[in-house]
């Protein structure tokens, strides 16, 4: 464990807590893409298939439970909770995510570390996580006034993977033989997808104006 990875995990956790806070307290998911939330739930399910048969540490185990539990409860809230579901803008959240799920699955079948079910599922979860934010970014472009919590949520989500990139650089230089091309490239693509959001988010924060993404 290193400081970049711990900061990355804490940033990831806080992004989920910000979203849960928004949905649970103001009972609204306005501006949040259910598609992205469902993709994240799928990412965690396919990534943590080995939660019971591969024990790394208490920390890993607990964080996996938290990520699984929170992502599934967010999907539940947005689908089942009356008030929250009413605030969901399904006419705007129209990204057809089979266009990302299938290619990620095919790619995972072709490029992976080992052609076993669990390894392919794990690789699929990496590729899927890299592009899972797309429905949310598309929705943000369509949402006129992005509220602060939504902006913070997306910012923290992008920042976590950027911190993971630093973690991989650190591990590359401190752990001989630490090479993870699949993880590194997926993580880099994921972070690059946030580039323009980061630009407009920091601009709105500096000029103290409402965050708005150009359509």
């Amino acid at each position: 464990m290193n400081v970049f990875r711990l900061a990355g995990d804490m940033t990831h956790l806080s992004s989920i807590l910000v979203l849960l806070l928004k949905i649970h307290t103001i009972k609204s998911c306005a501006g949040i893409s259910l598609k992205t939330q469902e993709l994240y739930a799928l990412v965690f399910i396919t990534r943590y298939l080995d939660i019971f048969d591969r024990f790394t540490s208490i920390y890993n185990f607990l964080m996996k439970l938290i990520f699984l539990g929170s992502s599934l409860s967010i999907v539940w809230y947005m689908r089942r909770h009356k008030a929250v579901h009413r605030s969901y803008d399904k006419d705007q959240d129209t990204f057809r995510y089979q266009f990302i799920v299938l290619p990620c699955l095919l790619l995972a079948l072709v490029i992976n570390h080992k052609l076993t079910f669990k390894e392919v599922m794990w690789t699929f979860s990496l590729y899927l996580e890299a592009v899972a934010i797309l429905p949310q970014l598309v929705l943000l472009q369509r949402t006129r006034n992005i509220d602060n919590l939504t902006g913070q949520y997306v910012f923290l989500l992008g920042a976590y993977r950027a911190l993971y990139l630093l973690n991989w650089v650190y591990r590359y230089f401190t752990e001989p033989g630490f090479v993870r091309w699949i993880t590194w490239i997926a993580g880099l693509v994921q972070t690059l997808l946030y580039a323009d959001f980061f630009y407009y988010y920091i601009l709105s924060w500096k000029n103290n104006v409402k965050l708005e993404l150009p359509a």
Binding site: H12, F67, H113, K114
Partner: peptide, 10 residues
Amino acid sequence: QPELNEHDEL
């Protein structure tokens, strides 16, 4: 030997 992948990260 292909890079070992012990999935030690979240």
